[in-house]
Amino acid sequence: MKNREVIRERILFILLLILALLYLFPMLLVLMNSFKGRFYISDTPFALPTAETFAGIKNYFSGIEKTGFLPAFGYSLFITVFSVGTIVLFTSMTAWCITRVKSKFSSFLYYLLVFSMIVPFQMVMFTMSKMANICHLDNPVGIIVLYLGFGAGLSVFIFSGFIKGIPHEIEEAAVIDGCGPIQTFFLVVLPILKPICITVAILNTMWIWNDYLLPYLVIGNNYKTIPIAVQYLQGGYGSRDMGAMMAMLVLAILPIIIFYLSLQKYIIKGVVAGAVKG
């Protein structure tokens, strides 16, 4: 009996191992091809580099040059970090306020924000980019406002769900101690919200870092984020350098993998919490 279970475990382990390798295969394939010459990629992607086809890291140089990868990385990082920071700060404030202050306006606002979650982006893509232009938000700083507005729904929803579960007594004690609403929120409530802040931050990071259409329409002509740079490499310049493409895919994946491996525990927890609440 014991023996049979061990064998079954081994079989399952091997099965999982094969699956895991299959899972990693596409990424490894891109990595391998990024070292091959541009003409040896599309037709024979599975062939290992040989002396003839090996291109070293030349693709990385041509890709970085053609796409302007370094500024793209800078824009992506800037927009993601500051948008996420802004979203966490302002939506937690809003969520706390409209959860605690019961009024018709509060619940109207709450439902309006939740409603925005189900609206597909295509519905507002044209009018939003026009609005962004009128308000001079079509630059890497202004786009933060758009992300705050478009990301508010989900974030307020998650924060509200959590805040409802916090006992009122803690805040009341703070008020008795002489705290105004601002102190109460920043000194008492926000520390309690820390785990959920991480959840909200992670969900928004995953969305904003990878977002393509919104930045493409709003700032894409002047400021290319990483997804826009990759797409531009495919369609733009009347040319399609597969080598540079592979190298750019590797460079685009790398930061997110590092981010994931270093904050893995928070990310998985955050995703579960976000999904269960959402």
Partner: peptide
Amino acid sequence: AFVIAFFIP
């Protein structure tokens, strides 16, 4: 931000 980015559009 919500009014600019979502509601009016």
